[in-house]
Design a protein around this nucleic acid. Sequence first.
RNA 1: CGGGAUGUGGCUCAGCUUGGUAGAGCGCUGCGUUCGGGACGCAGAGGUCGGAGGUUCAAAUCCUCUCAUCCCGACCA
Length: 498
Amino acid sequence: MSNLGITPRATDYSEWYNDLVVKAGLADHSGVRGCMVIKPHGYAIWENMQRALDDMFKATGHVNAYFPLFIPKSYLSREAAHVEGFAKECAVVTHYRLKNDPDGKGVVVDPDSKLEEELIIRPTSETVIWNTYAKWIQSYRDLPLLINQWANVVRWEMRTRLFLRTAEFLWQEGHTAHATWDEAEQEALTMLDAYRRFAEEWMAVPVLTGVKSEGEKFAGADHTYCIEALTQDLRCLQAGTSHHLGQNFAKAFDVKFQTAEGREEYVYATSWGVSTRLIGTLIMAHSDDKGLVCPPRLAPVQVVFVPMGKEEALRAATIEMADRLAGEMRALGIRVHVDKRDKESPGFKFNDWELKGACLRVELGPRDLEAGTCVVARRDTGEKSTLSLEALVAETPGMLETMQKALYDRALEFREANTHRVDTWEEFERMFEGEAGPGFVLAHWDGTTETENAITEKTKATIRCIPLRPLDPGDDAPGACVLTGKPSARRVVFAKAY
RNA sequence: CGGGAUGUGGCUCAGCUUGGUAGAGCGCUGCGUUCGGGACGCAGAGGUCGGAGGUUCAAAUCCUCUCAUCCCGACCA
């Protein structure tokens, strides 16, 4: 009995998160340290995300390609700043052969198979890609080069959380080359905006867009843009990044092109990515103590039918009706499931599908069949309504849209209620006291890394971003740094980060 | 990489102090009764107690080493 249900959020938020991910069948811990198994139900969310994002990339002129998993060690040494960022968490391949253990059972690494040059499992692909682009780019006519890849990457993390931080994760990385600084800048901003739209329109998660401070930016970038989401436990979750790499990688890999005027110049670059972490973001934005609440546009199961009936014949009749209606919904492109399990009671199925995040549940019993009606329950509000069977299919898309919008509105309201403006150090410190985060705290900062570090050391708060647009017109007015009192051009966003 | 904890059927755990040849609940399989908010009865299957050494007539239990996982810190999409 005690293993029914999940830990309530109020009891322990991270236990709740773990329970939800595992019990809703999204992912599981694997036997491999730091790595998770993404289960079919979780992978289905990822597939829906991939489809939507990929369409956005294609619509902005990008094409997909695939680059190697292995990176020769020498490549990584080419761009110094970038190495510094990743060196501590790289998996390294040193041998290429196993042999039977001469002393017993099992296999051992064959010492004779040592690689002359070790291979690094990509923590990100800039180096392989720029090594390749150097061969592809000669003329301004080869630009811009707009390529994306869907891939796995490995960062040897010490502490892992399902979806949020694992040693291996799935993501998408776009890598583009441009003739001018401005064009690369435009690209970085375009993709940032694609991420923002994806978060808002598909995930129903409002995000802040901004630029990272020097300390928080991608090592190797000139500057880094990001989208930042707020979780239910009032922490900040970086959901996507878009980097203007300047000419850093072009210089490191000698990627030059000839301009129309015949001059030789280094190209300008961008890279941008989002990962399976988005699934964690989604969960922490909308879900509740009953389980997953998934925005309809990404939900693997948008509608679930629970047919019921005491006697065999009645049950058969409700199943038949459910199948018919489900067929009509599928024709409209709705993702439907008919739960025909015989051994589970309707009550069990209700709870089970709430756990798994089906958006709408259609209860179909003998009494409904007789009356020509059904009961529809909405996952986010729990609200139940009785609909006629004739109206059901036609009204479903509208109900899904309503829920999609309601989730966004609720999340936005939540963020607004948890965004604070703070002007004194006393108040700032108080906000970050205790375990729970305070949400977003907008405060003035003098712009120096020293102050940023000092604030983080004192409060555990980090600068999540410098907003591109003020959330409130007043946020862009000059003020005095919350710690040092030195001049500040605008408010920046502080939060406790995941 | 530091500090703490835990490894016993698929899952959650008891047994370990005081060594004597392995248990419960859930899940699973079969049959029957059930079915509008987490159903029930009966009958079954399933574990060399994380691994390797050691002590002992005898080890899940005691000792040593090792591996793995989880929590708390430092680091991170």
